[in-house]
Structure formats: structure tokens, C-alpha cells
């Protein structure tokens, strides 16, 4: 009986490990966006797994391991940041509204799709990274989890601890700001790229 129970627990432990380890790359990618530094990102992921293994009894196999792990990672990051800095950065709503503009502005279609295609194809990782880093963490997290990790609004809501409607609004505005920044930078570099990404 004891042997059977022990074997079952061991089997469940193996399943738990398989289930949580499949998200390592995604967690590391998200940690890079939060910490903006590969070494800190590795430390954060390591700490996340340490906490997850400690809390494994609280996790029910078959439930959403991904959302659970990402939430641990983000909470660990925010707690560490709070300890390091007593005055966290506040988000200026006016700044965001101005940058996002009316939602409609970001969707105005160009006369031809070709300029936007070549603009998007020409984007480099550094461009996106720089633009993402301009976003406040709440918006950056929503966009990265949705557009890079391809999570549902419901999963993102669990991870960020906010209602789905707020997730939706942050993703919409975050994308609009990203587009705007990238187009503005390209325009300032080339002097003529302002039209290309209005539809993207």
C-alpha cells in the first residue's frame, strides 16, 4: 500500500515536472521583458521554479500550469522591485492617451499595403525591444503575453490579476502605442516613413 502510494506520488511528481518545464523558454522570454537583462532574467526564472517546486502541493495537475507559473514569475519580480524601490513608477494616463491617440488613428489604412509590408519586414528585434521598453510594465506585460506568448485574455487576466476588460483595453492601447513609436522612429530616421504602419 505504502509502496503504491509512494509510486503514485512519484509519478505525479514526474508529471508535475514535465508540465512545468515545458514553459521554461516562455518564462525566460517574459522575464527578459520584465528585467531587461539576461542575467536578472535567469535569476528570476530560477527563483520562479524554486517557488513552484516548493508550492507544488498547491498545484492541481491538469489545471493551467502556464498561467500559474507566469503569475509566480511576475509576482516575484514585482515584490523584488518593491523591496528595491519604495516609490514605484507611476503611470501617466495623459502620456498614454496622447501616445495611443484615438484607437482609430492607429488603424487608418494606407493606400497600398506594400509600404506597411516592407516596413514590418524591416523591423529588427532591437526596434521592438526599444518600443516595448517605452511601455509601462502593465501594458508591456499584456502585449507580450498576448502577442509573443499567444495567451488568451482569460489567462492574461489570471496572471496580471485584473479583469478581462482591462486586459483587452491594455492590449489595444499597448499595440497602438507600439505602432506609433515604431512609425515615429522610422519617420525620424528616414524622413518619409510616416504612412507605412497606419494599417498595422
Amino acid at each position: 500500500m505504502t509502496t503504491t502510494t509512494s509510486a503514485m506520488q512519484e509519478g505525479q511528481g514526474d508529471r508535475f515536472e514535465v508540465e512545468v518545464l515545458q514553459y521554461l523558454d516562455g518564462l525566460y522570454g517574459y522575464a527578459i521583458h520584465l528585467t531587461r537583462n539576461p542575467e536578472d532574467a535567469s535569476d528570476l526564472v530560477q527563483e520562479t521554479y524554486a517557488r513552484a517546486f516548493k508550492a507544488r502541493s498547491q498545484y492541481r495537475l491538469g489545471t493551467n500550469a502556464r498561467a500559474w507559473l507566469f503569475a509566480i514569475l511576475r509576482n516575484t519580480f514585482l515584490n523584488d522591485r518593491r523591496s528595491a524601490c519604495r516609490s514605484p513608477r507611476t503611470v501617466s494616463c495623459e502620456w498614454l492617451d496622447e501616445l495611443a491617440g484615438e484607437d482609430q488613428d492607429g488603424f487608418e489604412s494606407p493606400r497600398s499595403p506594400d509600404p506597411q509590408k516592407s516596413f514590418i519586414a524591416g523591423l529588427m528585434r532591437e526596434d521592438i525591444e526599444k518600443a516595448l521598453n517605452e511601455l509601462p510594465e502593465e501594458f508591456r506585460s499584456a502585449v507580450v503575453l498576448c502577442d509573443v506568448e499567444e495567451m488568451s485574455y482569460s489567462e492574461i487576466s489570471q496572471i496580471l490579476g485584473i479583469p478581462i476588460g482591462t486586459v483587452r483595453s491594455r492590449i489595444h492601447r499597448g499595440r497602438a502605442i507600439l505602432r506609433k513609436l515604431l512609425v515615429e522612429w522610422q519617420s525620424s530616421m528616414e524622413g518619409s516613413g510616416g504612412e507605412v504602419l497606419k494599417g498595422g
Partner: peptide
């Protein structure tokens, strides 16, 4: 055109920003 551009933009972001965890991690 708007949808095509947004899908392309999203796919470009995903392709560029996905990373693999380093082996030592």
C-alpha cells in the same frame, strides 16, 4: 488591409521576440 497589416505585425513581433532559455539556466 488593416487586418493583414496587424496580423503581419503580430507575427513579426512573435518571431523576433521569442527566445530560448540558455543551457546553463
Amino acid at each position: 488591409t488593416c487586418v493583414d497589416g496587424m496580423l503581419l505585425f503580430r507575427s513579426r513581433i512573435r518571431d523576433l521576440m521569442r527566445v530560448s532559455a540558455p543551457p546553463d539556466l
